[in-house]
């Protein structure tokens, strides 16, 4: 019930974002959208994803979008080709829905993701009855996979995010005016 209520609020927010022309109000509403999405993910028992969504979507994105607004404009221009964006969005959505048809049922224990290396990881993380931890010694499975089993992967992701952050900061820097120097 609460999931359906949150989804209805998400749809209402998205519809308003599409309708509004003021970009400042759109940034406010996307912040609300991120909070709603994060709560929804939390209710689906994905607290780490919700964590990321709240920090990135509601925190960093709002600030970056506002900095972008201060460099560009605050009103959305009316597009003359209205059909083309709609077609692109509908085609992308249809492709995504088509891709989900092949996915295993939600929570299916026989799904390939649960059969490959996951049992080994879980057996390594859960301590033996004598209290001996087998390999990594991290009590949380997600943390063990992220920080130990896929440590190089996480390091690469961090490098990518750092590079993206540097690029965004360079782009959003206000140009120094010549007449003051």
């Amino acid at each position: 019930m609460i999931l359906i209520a949150l989804l209805a609020l998400l749809v209402a927010t998205a519809w308003t974002v599409v309708r509004l022309r003021s970009l400042f109000a759109t940034v406010m509403l996307t912040g609300i959208y991120s909070f709603l999405g994060a709560s929804w993910m939390l209710l689906l028992d994905a607290p780490d994803v919700a964590f990321t969504e709240a920090a990135v979507g509601a925190g960093i994105s709002t600030v970056i979008m506002l900095a972008t607004l201060s460099l560009t404009t605050r009103e959305e221009k009316v597009c003359r080709f209205r059909v083309l964006p709609l077609l692109v969005v509908v085609a992308t959505g249809a492709a995504l829905v088509y891709a989900t048809l092949d996915m295993p049922v939600h929570g299916d224990p026989a799904a390939p993701a649960h059969l490959h290396v996951a049992p080994e990881y879980i057996a390594d993380v859960v301590p033996t009855p004598d209290g001996e931890v087998l390999q990594v010694g991290i009590p949380n499975v997600v943390t063990a996979v992220l920080a130990s089993y896929r440590g190089y992967d996480t390091l690469g992701e961090t490098v990518v995010i750092f590079t993206a952050g540097v690029a965004v900061m360079l782009l959003l820097r206000r140009p120094r005016r010549e007449d003051e120097s």
């Binding site: 909070f35 509601a58 925190g59």
Partner: peptide, 10 residues
């Protein structure tokens, strides 16, 4: 708690 902090900064 994290949401409250993020909200404040935003």
């Amino acid at each position: 708690l994290v949401y409250a902090l993020v909200n404040f900064i935003g």
